[in-house]
């Protein structure tokens, strides 16, 4: 179900510009790891290298290794499409397919992966929506368009869509930044439940959120604008927020910059 991520010597580029430099870290299965850091430090770029979404951007290029258990995602012959089927992603802004119903949104990934009987689909869709704490709100209107839901509901729909295909890892790119506090709380509760089944990596601008939801926290920083982002340190969340080993981390979390 959940797998360990092992990153070594990873750099990512946009054309000739190096966005992140030589990052290595390990993410344990069934844990939540939060990425924090100032804007432009490359934490979202790094997240997108973990499911090979970075190379979708024109000019996007990656050097280094990402091991999922023992398999290198960037090995020769590895199909990026297959990688994205095992590493799910939730985006900053909720992005359900606007022309699809709620049901079809959740079933979209399953339909890509193969043929399912109607009854199997129904079962998985219900399970996924329950897993995303959305079932009770939408069970009577599964054939209504997904774009008719509120922002928070749409984001939980996107989470249901991502977990319906049973990925090994779930990446979340600032999943709450477009949501109100109550919806944010709902998503944070959900993250706590999901980590029992998935390896979760979450990028957040909100340090309280990182402190609330994550087991481990990674702090990213950049020397100056235009310089590549670097991983400053990664440690248990308690330690990062109480007694970080690098001064820059303490400056950042205490609000002295960024």
């Amino acid at each position: 179900m959940a797998k360990r991520i092992d990153v070594s010597g990873l750099s990512a580029f946009y054309g000739t510009h190096k966005a992140i430099d030589d990052i290595s870290m390990t993410v344990e299965p069934r844990s939540v790891t939060a990425f924090i850091g100032p804007s432009g430090c490359g934490k979202s770029t790094f997240l997108r290298t973990l499911n090979r979404m970075h190379e979708v951007t024109p000019g996007g290029r990656v050097e280094g290794k990402v091991l999922l258990d023992d398999e290198n995602l960037y090995g020769t012959g590895v199909d990026p499409v297959a990688v994205r089927r095992t590493v799910g992603m939730v985006f900053q802004r909720p992005n359900p397919f606007p022309t699809m119903s709620i049901f079809d949104n959740v079933a979209a990934g399953l339909r890509l992966n193969g043929r399912y009987k109607k009854s199997e689909l129904t079962e998985i869709v219900e399970k996924s929506l329950q897993g995303a704490n959305l079932w009770n709100e939408v069970k009577d209107r599964l054939n209504k368009p997904g774009s008719g839901l509120s922002g928070g509901q749409q984001q939980r729909l996107c989470i249901a869509r991502a977990i319906a295909v049973e990925p090994q890892v779930l990446l979340m790119d600032e999943p709450c930044s477009a949501l109100d506090p109550i919806s944010t709380l709902a998503i944070e509760d959900l993250i706590g439940e999901l980590k029992e089944r998935f390896t979760i990596v979450i990028v957040t601008h909100n340090m309280q959120q990182a402190a609330r939801v994550s087991d481990r926290t990674a702090f990213f920083n950049l020397a100056a604008v235009g310089q590549p982002g670097k991983l400053i340190e990664i440690d248990d969340t308690d330690r990062i927020f109480s007694n970080p080993s690098v001064q820059a981390t303490e400056d950042y979390i205490s609000g002295r910059f960024g």
Binding site: N51, A82, R84, G88, F91, N95, F97, P98, G109
Partner: peptide
């Protein structure tokens, strides 16, 4: 077609044609 609609399909493991079928053509 909004970039995020296409990325939604891509992140689910859609091939280029599937992205077109799921996001581009409906839009």
């Amino acid at each position: 077609v909004p970039r995020m609609n296409e990325e939604a399909a891509l992140a689910l493991g859609a091939t280029r044609w599937e992205v077109i079928r799921m996001s581009v053509l409906p839009f």
